[in-house]
Design a binder for these strands. Structure first.
Length: 286
DNA sequence: AAGGTCTCCTGAGGGC
DNA sequence: TGCCCTCAGGAGACCT
């Protein structure tokens, strides 16, 4: 599942293998991945044909590639999306959805579950308006720690939900949220407004630490010929302390890791290191 | 405004 | 072996 480190690794690959190349033609093999583009599959292809990729940018889990006419190709990998650079004529990947012919190479969007997608953003070279609501990520030099702490502490929602709110901080998904909270020894249900500033800062610092480590690792999984990075940085197998470890001993205290339902998915935490917040006493209002 | 739930999508894996 | 069920989840839509 691509979160910030995986998407950044893809961005880096696009920068090195796609930027400067011109799109000769576009083949949309399945309509769903271009569903966000109001032009439809044919219009999407037309809008890109003849354009040259000028750069590769990222905000949170979104990627965008400015084009030579001021528009941009905007993309999100969703759960299972991959952007692959292939030699022309190589066999189609099983879930190949969109193919860009760049002459001496092809850029391919492969996505099994199709939660991801591509769209042309009109005038979106600087920052696509479609993602103007997405916050900066914790590695962005312009990310404002104090602003984040302040916003979290004005919210009643649990800190995990807030970590996943891409308008507060971007790039964090379910896995790194659980890992950051485990490392910070904070339970995800603790309301933002009940956390001390130092607690919020620790969670933020641990989110940076765990994603930074994954980023270093993800960068090495690149090879010279292909941009072939997806949600699997390989980091997960080795270094996860909480996510996916239900019933296994906490690496810090030995208590079995617990799994609970959360937003139609799962949360993993150590019940000893990350004590469940006591339910606030009901306040009767007259 | 903010919090919460639902939905989209496919293949892996479990149970029988 | 094969069928059915559940699960995984980012983020927009939608309701309260």
């Amino acid at each position: 599942m691509p979160e910030l480190p995986e998407v950044e690794t893809v961005r880096d690959g696009l920068q090195r293998h796609v930027v400067g190349h011109t799109i000769r033609s576009v083949a949309v093999l399945h309509p769903r991945p271009v569903r966000r583009d109001h032009r439809g599959p044919a219009g999407f292809a037309t809008a890109l044909t003849g354009r040259r990729f000028e750069a590769a940018h990222r905000r949170g889990k979104y990627l965008w590639l400015p084009l030579d006419n001021g528009d941009a190709l905007l993309g999100h990998l969703g759960m299972s999306g991959q952007l692959v650079v292939q030699q022309p004529g190589r066999p189609d990947e099983p879930h190949l959805r969109v193919r860009f012919d760049l002459g001496d190479r092809e850029l391919r969007f492969v996505d099994q579950r199709m939660f991801g997608g591509l769209a042309v953003s009109e005038g979106g070279a600087e920052l696509p308006r479609e993602i103007a609501h997405i916050a900066r990520d914790p590695f962005d030099p312009a990310f404002d720690d104090d602003l984040f702490v302040g916003r979290v502490r004005r919210r009643t929602a649990g800190i995990k939900r807030l970590l996943l709110d891409q308008t507060l901080v971007s790039g964090v998904g379910n896995i790194y949220a659980d890992e950051a909270l485990w490392r910070a020894q904070v339970h995800g249900d603790r309301p933002g407004e009940r956390l001390r500033p130092v607690d919020v800062r620790r969670v933020l610092a641990e989110a940076r630490a765990v994603m930074g480590a994954a980023l270093l690792h993800g960068g090495t999984s690149f090879d010279a010929l292909y941009v072939n990075v997806n949600g699997e940085s390989g980091y997960f197998d080795r270094s996860l302390h909480a996510y996916g470890r239900e019933g296994q001993e906490c690496d810090r205290c030995g208590t079995p890791i617990r799994r609970v339902e959360f937003m139609n998915r799962s949360s993993f935490f150590c019940p000893r290191c990350q004590p469940v917040p006591r339910v606030r006493r009901a306040v009767l209002r007259g």
